[in-house]
């Protein structure tokens, strides 16, 4: 399969702290890649380099290359804003816009780009894509923040899907959710990868094993091992990976 996202010798810094060290990783199109590793190993930082969110932090910088469909997202002529429009992101804590209705939350990105026609239809598709439509179709005018935590997270997924991004990044999207909502979001991830490439940070190895095609194991800013999940979780090549997945540290 051809890669849709490809990081090449990627380094990320917070001022002088070297948080992601020379990571190269290729993500096949319409697959789900899980990023695992102990807390603080640089998973979020790496993920945030993939849609140029990292550089929003004062004094943070990125070196190396990230290709989206073969062309660099760090091209000097490219506006990071344009990059973020084509690579969606979902955060650890659901963050719908307060004071906006469910509908407004879904279409807010479209309004920014000025593509206001067929908004009802796009919103419906996005909510269906996020497996939320049935639950909210009769209360689209209610505030987004009135939903439960799990529904809010799916609303945030719908908000990202409405932009029709080829790639969706998720940073521990279920770690703030209860087990039932977690199961729903996991199910959603599996169905989404038919149409979108997903890169998902997870703190939960079982989750990675359940939903991902490939898994990348990070440790102290380095990519230790990257392989088919079925291989990585059963016959890891690196001793450190084995220690981690058998629960001996992290």
């Amino acid at each position: 399969m051809k890669p849709i996202v490809e990081a090449k010798n990627l380094n990320a810094y917070f001022e002088n702290f070297h948080a992601v060290k020379n990571v190269s990783l290729a993500v096949p199109e319409k697959s789900l890649v899980a990023l695992i590793g102990p807390s603080g190993c640089g998973k979020s930082t790496f993920l945030r380099c993939l849609n140029r969110m990292h550089e929003e932090i004062p004094k943070a910088r990125v070196e190396g290359e990230v290709l989206l469909g073969g062309s660099s997202i760090y091209d000097r002529k490219l506006d990071p804003v344009a990059v973020r429009r084509s690579i969606g992101m979902v955060f650890q804590k659901p963050n719908p816009f307060p004071g906006m209705s469910i509908f407004e939350n879904v279409v807010v990105g479209l309004k920014l780009t000025g593509s206001r026609d067929r908004m009802d239809q796009v919103a419906e598709e996005a909510l269906k894509g996020a497996a939320l439509w049935e639950e909210v179709k009769d209360k689209l005018k209610k505030p987004g923040t009135s939903l439960s935590g799990g529904q809010q997270q799916r609303l945030c997924i719908a908000r990202a899907l409405a932009m029709k991004p080829p790639v969706l990044l998720m940073d521990e999207p279920t770690s703030a959710l209860d087990p039932i909502s977690t199961a729903k979001v996991e199910e959603l991830m599996i169905s989404l990868k038919k149409s979108v490439t997903l890169i998902v940070v997870t703190h939960n190895m079982q989750q990675a094993a359940r939903v991902s095609d490939r898994t990348a194991f990070f440790l102290m800013g380095e990519l230790v091992e990257y392989d088919e999940s079925s291989t990585l979780f059963t016959v890891p090549k690196d001793a450190k990976t084995e220690q981690y997945i058998t629960g001996r540290f992290g």
């Binding site: 344009a82 973020r84 969606g88 992101m89 955060f91 963050n95 807010v108």
Partner: peptide
Amino acid sequence: AQREAALAIG
């Protein structure tokens, strides 16, 4: 998180 939400949708 609210600021990031806006930046992330472009």
